[in-house]
Amino acid sequence: MASIEQGKQAILLNKKYKEGLLNFLSAQGILVFFLICMFAFSLFSEQFLSQSNIMTVVRQASIIGIIAVGVTIVIIGGNLDLSVGSMLSFSTVLVVDLHDKIGPAGAIVLMFVLTLMIGAVNGLLIGFMRLNSLIVTLAMLSAVQGLVLIYSGGKNVDIANQSDTWFAIFGRGYVLGIAVPVILFAVLAIIVQVGMSYTSYGRRIFAVGGNPAAAVYSGIRRNWCVFSTYLISAFCVACAALVLGSRVMGSQNNVGQGYELLVLAGIILGGTSLLGGAGSVWKTIIGVLILGFIQNGLLLLGYPYYTQWLVTWVIIILAVWLDLANKRKRLFTTHS
């Protein structure tokens, strides 16, 4: 009798301990992991934690970050956007190529309009025709890459007079000592985060992502909501293209290749669930920064840049596993 009681106690205690650890890991695990990595990198490289290196990382991460902000909204709304990679190529090639042809202002406006149109096509197909977002945006990924190649005829583009254009400010400029890309990233992130947390629009997107049927039954225009998330996503891609084109002052046809995965990695790493209805831009920012620091650290340690692809894979798996573990735990502790 006593031994059974003891056994029970031990099981409960063990369970409690396990749950506590799991809880902690799923809530803070990424941050802990991040700190360990930072610490490890700083041991091997003195530059790693220097102010200039940190600023460099943040600046480099801002392109992914700007896109990730938009894609986060799409994901909260219950869909995916995988087309952002080739959309970035499209927009960057467009703005760089048009810069010399019609002037920077015209190039920027036209690039934004065309990018938003691609977003609108995504939005129409997914929001109004209710097609599966994974398939639609995956198809769009290759379609837009095709468009870029047709447009450029396979040639890379660049800006002839690179030192003498105000267009340079978006990628190379500084305001009050802060890089313009970082400022753009921060401003976009703040606007979108405020929009999601404090406006009725944000509430609707959360509702649509959380339970589309219930959202419709609540009088919410689901189709428009989904449509709008793809416009936001496209707008963010256009902003990122502005930064990228201005920084490089030229563009390869496939400059955005792989960005869709990096963006997704940052979002998942931050802890936004791919199921929709939950998540936040803050989390995405943290995720993107972690990714940036790890890439940078690997480079400083002398690993070739392509090791980051492998490491990114490990990180995504880890993040998804923690997300799942967390869900499983919640599943078993819900009460009715």
Binding site: R203, A207, G210, N211, A214, S218, I220, G277
Partner: peptide
């Protein structure tokens, strides 16, 4: 219902206009 949402947010979901001004909650 949106099961993952809290009670308050579910309660106002069909009349968001009544608890917001200029789109802000």
């Amino acid at each position: 219902l949106i099961l993952g949402m809290n009670c308050r947010d579910n309660m106002t979901l069909s009349a968001l206009g009544s608890v917001s001004s200029m789109g802000f909650m």
